[in-house]
Amino acid sequence: MTSSEPTSTRRRLRSGAPAVALLLVGLVTGLPLGGCSIPVSDMPLLGVSDDQEKDSNGYLAVNALPTGREEKAMEPGERSKLESELIATRERQTAAAAAAAGATASASAAK
């Protein structure tokens, strides 16, 4: 600051300095402590017990096992039938892709 500045400007600059310093101290101490906080839903004072399911999206917890199936997943005959159908579909798609690539190559060669 120079002596040509009015005294009111100097006072405003000086009066804002403690507020800025206080804000910086709050940020410097608040950010590390904020990482240590726990979610509000886990606080015991709010009445959430460990028996209640905390995951509302339908997924099981990491340590929970799914219930057993009541029926078999697939019979061996049904499985082999589906495998053969998938193989046949894959072969048809491969043949169709090869035919399309051949048609594209012959069309570009004709130009």
Rank of each mutant, 00 (worst) to 15 (best):
A64V: 14
A97S: 05
V25P: 06
G102H: 11
Q52F: 04
T104E: 09
M1D: 01
G26S: 03
S84R: 11
R69H: 08
P32H: 01
R11G: 04
M43T: 08
L31A: 11
L13R: 00
A105V: 08
T2R: 13
G35V: 03
A17N: 09
A61W: 14
R69K: 12
A101D: 08
V28W: 02
Q52S: 09
L31P: 01
L22P: 00
A109H: 02
R92I: 00
E85Q: 06
K72W: 10
R92L: 13
G68V: 05
S3Y: 05
E85S: 11
E83S: 10
K72D: 07
V40F: 11
S56Q: 14
L45P: 09
I38K: 11
L60M: 13
S8N: 01
S106A: 12
R12E: 04
L45R: 11
P44T: 09
D42G: 14
L46P: 04
V28G: 00
D51H: 08
I87K: 11
P18H: 02
K111T: 08
A95S: 08
L13D: 03
V48N: 15
M1F: 03
P6C: 10
V28S: 03
E75D: 14
E78I: 14
A73W: 12
K111F: 06
T29R: 05
L33N: 02
R79L: 15
T29A: 15
T9W: 04
A103K: 06
A88N: 05
A21D: 11
P6V: 03
C36S: 11
A98E: 07
S106L: 12
D51L: 15
T9V: 09
G30N: 11
S41Y: 13
K81W: 07
D50C: 00
M74Y: 08
S80F: 01
A100R: 08
V28D: 03
G26Y: 08
M43L: 15
S106Q: 13
L13V: 06
S56V: 15
L65H: 15
R11L: 13
R11H: 09
A98L: 13
L82P: 04
G58N: 01
L45F: 13
G26F: 05
L82D: 07
S84D: 12
P66C: 04
P44A: 09
Y59W: 10
A109T: 09
T7K: 09
S80I: 10
S37E: 10
A109Q: 01
G16D: 04
L86A: 10
A107Q: 08
G68H: 07
G102E: 13
S4H: 06
K111P: 12
A64L: 00
P18F: 05
S41T: 12
G102Q: 13
A109P: 00
M74N: 14
G102T: 11
A99P: 01
A110E: 01
E5F: 08
P18L: 00
A21Q: 11
G77W: 09
V20L: 14
A88T: 06
S80M: 15
A101W: 01
S3W: 09
P76F: 00
S37R: 15
E83G: 05
A21Y: 07
V48Y: 07
Y59S: 13
G35C: 08
L23C: 06
A107R: 07
L24Q: 03
A105G: 03
T89K: 15
E78W: 06
A107S: 09
T67N: 15
